[in-house]
Amino acid sequence: MLKYGVTHLLATAYHPQTSGQVEVSNRGLKRILERTVGKNRASWSDKLDDALWAFRTAFKTPIGCTPYKLVYGKACHLPIELEHKAYWALKHANFDLKYAGDHRKVQLNELNELRDQAYENYLIYKEKTKKIHDSKIKNRVFNVGDRVLLFNSRLKIFSGKLKTRWTEPFTVTQVFPYGTVELSQTDGPNFKVNGHRLKHYFGGDIPPMVVPDLQTFPKDQ
Results as ranks from 00 to 15, higher is better:
4 Y>F: 09
34 E>D: 11
114 L>N: 00
118 A>Q: 05
64 G>H: 07
51 A>N: 07
130 K>T: 08
100 A>T: 06
183 L>N: 06
76 C>W: 12
83 E>N: 08
35 R>M: 07
165 R>L: 05
102 D>S: 13
76 C>K: 08
221 Q>M: 05
171 T>G: 01
62 P>D: 00
200 H>M: 10
42 A>C: 03
192 K>G: 00
2 L>P: 02
214 L>A: 06
198 L>E: 03
35 R>V: 02
176 F>W: 09
140 R>Y: 05
150 L>F: 09
29 L>G: 02
77 H>A: 02
196 H>Q: 10
156 K>S: 04
78 L>G: 02
164 T>W: 01
221 Q>Y: 09
76 C>Q: 05
110 E>M: 12
22 V>S: 14
212 P>I: 07
172 V>C: 06
183 L>Q: 04
221 Q>D: 09
26 N>G: 03
81 E>W: 14
204 G>W: 05
22 V>P: 00
39 K>N: 05
17 Q>Y: 04
192 K>C: 06
124 I>L: 11
100 A>V: 04
20 G>N: 14
77 H>E: 07
208 P>V: 10
32 I>Y: 08
159 S>Q: 14
181 V>S: 04
208 P>N: 10
99 Y>Q: 15
36 T>A: 12
219 K>G: 01
68 Y>H: 15
55 F>K: 10
9 L>C: 08
122 Y>T: 13
63 I>M: 12
163 K>G: 01
150 L>W: 04
117 Q>V: 03
152 N>I: 03
115 R>P: 00
141 V>D: 08
218 P>E: 02
54 A>C: 13
206 I>K: 15
169 P>S: 08
112 N>Q: 12
39 K>H: 05
191 F>T: 13
105 K>Y: 02
144 V>P: 01
221 Q>V: 11
26 N>R: 05
152 N>H: 09
218 P>V: 10
181 V>G: 03
18 T>Q: 10
79 P>R: 13
69 K>W: 00
52 L>W: 00
20 G>M: 06
80 I>G: 01
34 E>H: 12
150 L>G: 01
186 T>A: 13
159 S>V: 04
219 K>T: 12
190 N>C: 14
25 S>C: 08
188 G>N: 14
111 L>D: 00
25 S>E: 08
178 Y>Q: 13
157 I>N: 07
98 K>D: 07
99 Y>H: 08
72 Y>Q: 05
134 D>F: 05
68 Y>R: 00
114 L>Q: 11
56 R>C: 03
172 V>H: 03
196 H>D: 06
193 V>W: 02
139 N>P: 02
121 N>E: 09
55 F>Y: 15
132 I>E: 10
131 K>G: 00
201 Y>C: 06
168 E>P: 04
23 E>R: 15
211 V>Y: 12
61 T>A: 14
77 H>P: 00
75 A>G: 10
201 Y>N: 07
14 Y>K: 10
155 L>D: 03
176 F>N: 11
125 Y>F: 15
21 Q>D: 07
163 K>M: 08
178 Y>N: 15
15 H>M: 02
95 F>C: 11
104 R>H: 11
157 I>A: 12
145 G>P: 04
8 H>E: 04
135 S>R: 15
164 T>K: 14
44 W>E: 09
221 Q>G: 03
95 F>E: 13
188 G>H: 11
97 L>Y: 06
7 T>H: 10
164 T>M: 03
